[in-house]
Design a binder for these strands. Structure first.
Lengths: 280, 280
DNA sequence: TTTGAATTTTTCATATTGTGAAATTGACTT
DNA sequence: AAGTCAATTTCACAATATGAAAAATTCAAA
């Protein structure tokens, strides 16, 4: 029998009557109060440890409304209230729910051993990141044993234009998509090396495509270099990036191509594990 | 100048007019539609990859309502929709928000090197978990290099009565609190070794208090043993547990006390790093 | 001790808006 | 081409979310 390669149709009733292919998702159909509540939650997650009125003022909402939202979320453990300091925090249930995002694909399970091997081979911290809007979302990391090490805790966001994984993901997008993203999110400068000029960035991206891996040469953080390669899924989409990052003295020019090859190999391994094919 | 040891009052307006100390948080003050929406989100996180009507049926809600909630959350990336399969998933933004729970305390940062050292010393996977209701929430893990290894991805929940960290946290609670928890959540049986009988469990807890560490002898998973010790905060509360877990053949009886000491030492180190004092 | 100021929590009247039933749409199957 | 099924949208109504203002509570200063 010819195999249906990837996804098992979980239940039997797959999908009989689908709606139009063109996803309206009109904003008319949203729940306004829920959206306001989620704005409060997101705001709290960014600025934890604030009091009620501080949060309300920051969002321009009435304290009463914010209070009710927080109390509701607190009942589920999504936010927490410190009764001594009278401050609000993100709660454990938010972590529980959010962590289940990683179960969506088996990518993480497949990536872990590959990242570990990459860390062993290069001796440096290995990272896995996916694109999230104009940012890279770091989803996993295997740390080096060295005492000076790069560190992006899972859940960290970083701009596309100033990280190895970000640039390598950018390099796989259509030019028009790149231009749109960069226009919507003008590249911020982090260090003297950050490529904020579009032409400079485009030049780098072309080089990345040709070379097969990206180099972040202290473009986000002085003293830190990072080398990244793209991971493709079964549809040929660049869905993630693998990188190795460490202090510049250890990632010196002499090792760049050696590490580059190792990272490329790891990315190709993961691509294969996901049912994709390495690009030319 | 005398130092204000722990917490820096972030802003100046600390807390002038606090409400009563006894936190009513009456259920009257909650936002019902938000609570229903969060129920949908939690349900989705537990059963990802379902269609709209499947989710609605499971919750006994109307498809229209569930649809609007999901579309609203989708706009923020908290949930995601797979237009090909017409299925809903937890989105990256949920992960971003949830991961910030870990920034609340510096516990994780302080724990990581300690867990690493513990893993190195024992050769087995080291874990950090905190209590969450009647369950343990695993928040961090440093994996062994062995190819057969225990694995609880961060965000995993496990019942208190059937895990090393769970039992060690239980052992530090008041008897009345233990009774309440166990009554509300009758201990489920996972293996032949699971202590589902309250007296048997109480006996074990007494032994744990005396010995200073807990042993999970294949009580959750056959073939897996786990040794755990409690971590205390500056107020003397048991706020977390550190454990080492691995396959029974490697965690054999001969090594129990050696590993137990190592785990106790690691837990004491973290306790100290949190400003707490080791218990007698 | 008393008073005042700051902040949280509750009350209340109002209209915004969330809701389910039913109609509609679109895609897949036969 | 007709039928079926699940996802959207519409619609009318009532539930309920909302802000303003009052009440409650605590801390600080007088």
């Amino acid at each position: 029998m010819p195999e249906a390669p990837e996804n098992k149709p979980p239940s039997s009733k797959a999908s009989r009557g689908r709606p139009r292919d063109w996803h309206d998702k009109t904003e008319q159909n949203t729940v306004k109060s829920l959206d306001r509540a989620m704005a409060i939650l997101e705001d709290l997650s960014q600025h934890q440890g604030r009091g009620l009125s501080e949060i309300a003022d920051g969002l321009g909402q009435s304290a009463a409304t914010v209070y009710r939202v927080l109390v509701t979320l607190e009942a589920r453990g999504i936010v927490e209230f410190d009764p001594v300091e009278q401050l609000w925090w993100i709660g454990p249930q938010a972590f529980v729910i959010g962590a289940r995002f990683l179960r969506r694909t088996a990518m993480l399970d497949r990536a872990r051993p590959i990242l570990r091997a990459l860390m062993m081979e290069t001796g440096e911290t290995a990272n896995l990141g996916v694109a999230r809007g104009a940012e890279v979302l770091f989803v996993a990391q295997i740390e080096t044993h060295e005492s000076i090490r790069a560190f992006f805790p899972p859940g960290t966001l970083s701009p596309l234009h100033a990280s190895g994984i970000g640039k390598v993901l950018l390099s796989q997008m259509q030019d028009e998509e790149i231009a749109r993203l960069m226009a919507a999110h003008p590249p911020e400068r982090f260090t003297i090396n950050t490529r904020t000029d579009f032409d400079l960035l485009a030049e780098d991206l072309a080089q990345i495509r040709e070379r097969g891996y990206a180099i972040d040469n202290e473009e986000k953080t002085l003293g830190m270099r990072c080398i990244a390669a793209p991971v493709f899924d079964a549809f040929g989409q660049a869905v993630a990036g693998i990188s190795v990052s460490g202090p510049t003295p250890r990632i010196d020019v002499a090792r760049l191509s050696q590490i580059g090859s190792a990272v490329q190999r790891a990315a190709a391994d993961l691509t294969k594990a996901l049912g994709g094919e390495a690009r030319a």
